[in-house]
Design a protein around this nucleic acid. Structure first.
Lengths: 188, 188
DNA sequence: TTAAACTTTCAGAAATTTCTGAAACATGTA
DNA sequence: TACATGTTTCAGAAATTTCTGAAAGTTTAA
């Protein structure tokens, strides 16, 4: 399969950047190519288009499937496996966030929780524990919040984003608002 | 300088994780150690405590300074340079977000902008462009939003987070609210 | 100017990650 | 069974990243 220069530049760029987002260059390229191609692609097509080995594609697809970013599909009368991305761009972003959290934040959170169970032994440790507690709280906040955002529909999220600086204004009116309607927030 | 086992486990863990957050293992360790230590540390102390070379510390400090996560400070009558973290844990998270955005999102955004200037040549390219446009819009949204959040004070942000599921409820009342008070949102 | 005390640089060693390609494996068909 | 058409695995090659440590650089003081 040949691809146009501008699409190619995107695919390659995504490869370079992809490594920052948790997968390596070729996996990034494979994913980008699948995103911008309407029809599902076979492993061989991926390998030939990107000039990478067949084996590498196999491993890459396995990884992308483990991230739930790619699905296998079949074409009637064809024994090959064809790959395509799952869901929308929005789903992609959501999934990447979620998976990264699982791999990067959660382990830190549980380590901090464990470490903070006991009491600090001296002044130095007390200071360290304070900082670790702060990081723990921050990460927990982020975790909780990202959960909320993921439950929000894209439309609502878009509204929230467009609101922009208005968020601040809105917050200052929040108490007033919720008191008026006597609707408590659903705190955990 | 010797550090307690639990603090050490945090420092090492942060090293492993740090590589995910944009810096390598030893830089992550150096930063973690500075975070949990109250007094500023010299390069030699860092090197000895972490068992890494003096040269590596020098490079690491340069990098952390370029991230604006670490500052140099001096002790009167001492020619050594001492390092300490800048700002609070909250500032740290903010800075890391901002720097990562600069390095990871912005280049993609400008590549997409450039690529999308011209018209697609055929049906395949049209589909690809559509997807690229969606990614572009998503990234731009994130960019705009993260800007907003950064301008928000930690207290307000905390309120917003605690609000949790309430955000959704609040949004549905937003129009009503702003109409009542005839206060338009400051859209860009 | 020399020396002492410190920092930075960078070539190349070491460690780690990624990728290839051949062999093993799987599955359907004749 | 033998074969055709696929996929997966994995040892080790290749590429990349990180780290060391010795040499060069900087600054202050006498």
């Amino acid at each position: 399969m040949e691809i146009s220069p501008r699409v190619q530049s995107f695919v390659f760029h995504f490869g370079e950047m992809g490594s920052r987002w948790g997968f390596n260059r070729t996996v990034g390229q494979m994913y980008a190519l699948l995103v911008v191609t309407e029809r599902p692609l076979s492993a061989t097509e991926l390998a030939e288009t990107l000039n990478i080995s067949r084996g590498n594609v196999s491993m890459g697809m396995k990884e992308l499937q483990s991230w739930r970013l790619v699905q296998v599909s079949h074409i009637p009368g064809d024994r090959k496996e064809y790959y395509r991305v799952t869901g929308s761009i929005w789903d992609m972003a959501n999934t990447i966030f979620e998976e990264r959290k699982k791999r990067e934040v959660d382990p830190t959170l549980s380590l901090l929780r464990d470490n903070l169970l006991e009491e600090p032994k001296d002044k130095e440790e007390a200071f360290a524990f304070e900082k670790m507690q702060e990081i723990h709280d921050l990460l927990e906040m982020l975790t909780q919040w990202s959960g909320e955002l993921q439950r929000l529909s894209p439309e609502k999220l878009s509204t929230l984003m467009k609101l922009g600086a208005g968020v601040s204004k809105m917050l200052s009116m929040k108490d007033q608002l919720f008191t008026k309607n006597s609707q408590p927030t659903s705190d955990s």
